[in-house]
Amino acid sequence: MKKLVVSRLISSVPLLVLLSLFVFGLINLTPTDPAAQILGVGAGEDAKAAYRHQLGLDRPLHEQFGQWVLGALRGDLGKSWFTAQPVTQMIGDRLGVTLSLALLALVLALLAGVPLGILGALRPGSVPDRILTLAVSLGLAVPGFWLALLLALLFALTLRWFPVVGYTPFTEDPGEWARSLVLPATAMAVHTAAVIARQTRGALVDTLNAPYVQALRSRGIPFRRILLRYAMKNAMIPVLAVIAVQMSVLVGVTFVVERIFALPGIGTLLMDGVVQADMPVLQGTVVVVGALVLLINLITDIAYGVVNPKVRPR
């Protein structure tokens, strides 16, 4: 197991380098001049040149990139061109919001998706199964941010059960923290729950038809016991793979949902970076999110190894 973790950690380093190189290249392909943007077009050439020098933009590209990578390895992602705040700190301040949102959404999706998938798999083709299939199709099609809008309209604006906008840090008031996350997390969870329910159902139907289930039954093991102790574990293997993909999707969705509920997460930071063409912020955010997704994949891989003995290195 330790070997797996280490080898995966090592193999994720080139991925991260590639990713940052990709973003870096993308940024430098474009003729944006931050000096002109920040100092104003009317600023003198000298002032602009001085500013570019200050940002290190007058140095050769490979040097800039090397500088950035060296910094990134030490945890220094540079400074925002606009606020001069360290990017690492800006991201650190907001990561918690995005992560807690995505995690909460995943937990909700699992709580709903897995039992629904099991329900469908137990009686394929039955009425509940058909209703479920329909609901899953709908869940996959409804945009999360639209759902967020409707939820906000109903529960926050009309019924006033939850705050319309804003975020309370967990450390300040756990109750308020939960209240501020329930609506956005629910809106995000619907799509993921549909994906998980669909996958669980399919995997479990396949598993219940597997020869070893027949073999267990031939030994007089009660069906419930087979389902809970054997079929579920085997069915969860493909579901785990989907969960990894969904985590990355959820992190993406938070960007939009954060905006609706005015939550101070990575998404808002990223949007500011995009709108202002604040390259250090943009690059830092993309790489951090990429690293996060890789980390999630690693965790899923480990879980995968725990469940599936075939991929476990010996």
Partner: peptide
């Protein structure tokens, strides 16, 4: 599609 699963028999009863 592995996710959709076959409309197979219910293994029980």
């Amino acid at each position: 599609d592995p996710a959709a699963g076959a409309p197979a028999r219910s293994a029980r009863t």
